[in-house]
Each structure stands twice: as C-alpha cells, then as structure tokens.
Amino acid sequence: MIPAGFEYHRPADLASAVDILRAHGDEARVVAGGHSLIPMMKLRMADLRHLIDLQAIGALKGITIAEGTATLGAMTTQHELIENADLAAAIPLLREAALQIADPQVRYMGTVGGNVANGDPGNDMPGLMQCLDARFELYGAEGTRQVAARDFYEAAYFTARSDLEILTKILIPVPASGTGYAYAKQKRKIGDYATAAAAVLIGSDGASVAMTNLSDTPVWSEEAGTALASGDIEGCVAAMLAAIDPQEDMRGPIAFKKHVAAVILRRAIDSALSRRA
C-alpha cells in the first residue's frame, strides 16, 4: 500500500496550476482532499509522476450566497459545507446529503470539488448536484466555461472536464422557499458508499429526482421528475427504475439493488413531501 514515487507541486494560483498540468500532460493530476485519489495511488491503480496540490489556491475556497445562487469554491470541504449555517438554511438538502458521506475524518479533508470531479459512480455529490441543477465552472488555458451537472458525467471516471482543466466552483440555484427535500441513502456501514441513494426536491413548480451508485454515472431522470411533480409517485419510481443500470458487487445482486432503489426513492419522496411547505 505504498504509491510509486511522484513530484509534489503546490502552486499558489490557478494559472500556475494549469501550467504544471499542461507541462506534464496525463502524468500530472490535481489533488484536493486526496481521499479518493491517494487510495488509488497507494493501490497503484493511479500511476502519476506529478501531483498538484490545490490547497494553497485561495481562489478555490469559500461559500457565498447571493442573488438566488449559492457558490461553493471547489476546495470547500464537506465539513465546511455542513458547518455553514447560511447554506444549511438556503439549501438544507446539501447538508443532509453531506452528513451521509463517509465519516467526520474523511469530511474534514474531502472537498466538494473533488467529490464532483472524481467521476466515481459511488460519490454522493454528483447525483445531488444533478438534482439541484448545479453548474460547474471549469478553468483552463482557454479561459473559463460552465457545464451543467446534468451534462457533466459521461461514464465511470469520465466527465466533460478535460484533463487540463480545473474545476473552480459550483453554482447552485437556491430552491424556492418551501421546497420539499430529502436525501436518503442505504449503506452497509459508516464510511460506505451507497447501496442506493436518492436526492429529491419537490417544489410548487416542479420536482427533481436523482440517484447514486446505481449506474456508471449518477442518474437524473427528467421523466421521473415530471411524474413526481404531477403527484404520480409510482410513475416517478417506474421512470427511475427504467433509467438505472446497477451492477452486482459485494453490496448485492442486481435484483436486490433495483428493489432497494425503489424503496429508498419512495422513502425520500415521502420525506420530501412531508417537508414541503
């Protein structure tokens, strides 16, 4: 469990970070909290010669809420997200989900940016961000662009981000007050990725539903959201079941995962409805 040797870089600004990325191509990777990347390096599944630590880049930190949008710096830790009272008041769904990620030790280090950029189908934040219709801001040599979370995930570990771009911030529209919300997750133990997890928002003008670890990308289903908005819970569940594509692993066989996906989704819907004002 010892990684191969690598060079460690700690640039102070984004431009320098991108320069280092460009200089070393796919031999380089940025590291945020390291709680997904470093285990992969220790298992020698990720073999990198250059590691670019983003910790010293001030521009990647901070949480602001203004004009109906919450902006999270990519280097915001999951712990900071949980602790921010304004954010918890504006988007309680975020906090509810973050509390179900890993354990406190991991959350002190793990970042929101790392979680959404990683592209691991097990990560909770990608589905959550799709449910919230967040946008990711990417910074590269050609400048800055934004990609919708719903368009970001292509396959396991493949995203719309190019290897030479850095995710700088996440912009989330603050749901209208009174929107019902819930994040429900089944896991085997503390610190485990989801067997099935569901993020649900139900407002007066629509609903949004996404699920995690049931396919090689997060699954947001427009059809499921539409059905739910019209009060058709069974239609919502059916649409979601049609959209997911779980694989067998130590958490269980496919039939079990499908069953649990439906149960967890229904529970999230119940809880979101009960919170809708």
């Binding site: 066989p253 039939a255 079990f256 069953h259 649990v260």
Partner: peptide
C-alpha cells in the same frame, strides 16, 4: 446476514 441476504430471505418467502 448482510442487507442483501436478509432481503433475499424475504424475497424467497414472498414478502415483497
């Protein structure tokens, strides 16, 4: 008796 095996008991007994 992890989650899926307990689920399987219930499934096989027709409890779903």
């Amino acid at each position: 008796h992890d989650h899926w095996r307990i689920w399987k008991i219930a499934e096989d007994l027709g409890l779903h």
